[in-house]
Amino acid sequence: MLAPPSPVTVEIIVNGTPRRACVEPRTTLVDFLREHLGLTGTHIGCEHGICGACSVLLEGEPVRACCLFALQVEGLSVTTVEGLAPARGELSRLQNAFCEAHALQCGYCTPGMLIACHDLLARNPRPSEEEIREAIGGNLCRCTGYQQIVDAVKLASGQEAAHG
């Protein structure tokens, strides 16, 4: 039999800054961010990879932070929704477009949506409506509806929204 696991120190580069905490091996990346670093921008929804609320960028690519253990990410670079704005007190172009197009209501899915759409625009600066819907296909919204989110991404990419 294995000895019961003891907490271990893990260091992850979060939004450009190395951050360290002592965690149980079973601590997921999203719990590490929220409970140990106090970065509560990343939300926890389903905790098993369905809803997309916990999306973050890992080495620049969107992943679900509930389906990764913090220990697996040791030494790697993570960007959360807190890291998307250019400076404290400011919003990114995409975040402003979300406000403009009323792409959020309760805000629960918003951090995950922003991460997914940020990644899309980084890869594809002028996405089609179909490409936007594909990019947010792994993120559930239960109130605003997806149309305004699609409109916001169009707006952020300098394209006219279908339903203004």
């Binding site: 997309g52 992943v63 679900r64 997914a116 296909g137 993120n139």
Partner: peptide
Amino acid sequence: VGHVQTRNR
């Protein structure tokens, strides 16, 4: 298969 977030990983 899944979504961008799951296929990345």
